[in-house]
Design a protein around this nucleic acid. Sequence first.
DNA 1: GCAGTTGAGTTGAGCTCTCAACTACTTACC
DNA 2: GGTAAGTAGTTGAGAGCTCAACTCAACTGC
Lengths: 169, 169
Amino acid sequence: MAKTRWLSAPEQRAWRAYLEATTLLFDALDRQLQRDSGMPHAYYEILVRLSEADNRSLRMSELADVTRSSRSRLSHAVARLEERGWLKRVDCPTDKRGQIATLTDAGFAALEEAAPGHVETVRRFLIDRLTPEQVAQLEQIGSVVIAGLETPECVKVRAEDAVPAPAPA
Amino acid sequence: MAKTRWLSAPEQRAWRAYLEATTLLFDALDRQLQRDSGMPHAYYEILVRLSEADNRSLRMSELADVTRSSRSRLSHAVARLEERGWLKRVDCPTDKRGQIATLTDAGFAALEEAAPGHVETVRRFLIDRLTPEQVAQLEQIGSVVIAGLETPECVKVRAEDAVPAPAPA
DNA sequence: GCAGTTGAGTTGAGCTCTCAACTACTTACC
DNA sequence: GGTAAGTAGTTGAGAGCTCAACTCAACTGC
């Protein structure tokens, strides 16, 4: 294995600031949603994505893709959400292996109830603290990272092996 | 309650890009560490912070602060790490309520073993994808968010109430 | 038309994290 | 110096997540 390329001082500072900020922020968001709406953030995301889809419905695998969730995590989560009556699952007519998750009216109502407090928290702890330039920078940085992690090659790596391959320059 | 200030289009894009990138990245980091070193990222952070401290030791509450962890989470985590022999706890001589966590040689060795693969992954999926300007921007953004979440007022809010108070402008 | 393989989704065990309750000690105040 | 309030840390129950194993359906090639 090649000699480790440790992080430089500026890189280290950036990584730690990002890590700490994100830890604090995500914890705060999860706590707010859990307390005020009785759901973790991951569940909120599922409701949001379903609410935006045609017929408020998505195949499980599409839902997993857009929420950046593993199949297993989604399967567990959807089971819980179905127990609460916030969505229901029906068989896919064109592919008998498939399941389609549909947001119920109760689920939509729960989302409408939860959204204002959540958005307020996102604003308060993130967006409203940044300049418009920083908002744009954050989008740019996020996009680059997403691109790096969703190529077929990296999806594979993510799933099974992160050994330093001849990384794309 | 005041009318909700929804996110503008650029704000929404930035928030979602950040959220998705972070979800993917943190999942990838956790998976790499779990697979190659048998520990979650939170445990790695604990080992890192102890290794940097004087005498490789910190009070539980200081360790909780620097790792941005709740007391409870840290207490559970330290108990697991102690079972593995990676650290040990001793009573604090000056405050009988206190406990001091100390990294053992085995813990230090585990960290040395884990670090290269972890740093490689951070580089590969984050740092090496960014320009030096973006690295600096990320540090700036992170610092602003941390500052907003660690003021006494917000610590309190985080802990008990995120209702839209007359937020600092 | 029938193996073998791939894809969709689920399940259960094990682990981490959260929340709330609790013990034990310390500090402040009178 | 004794009580009240605050601080340090732990604990247990409950919930969500990960990993690996599994079922069932759809392709693929012959």
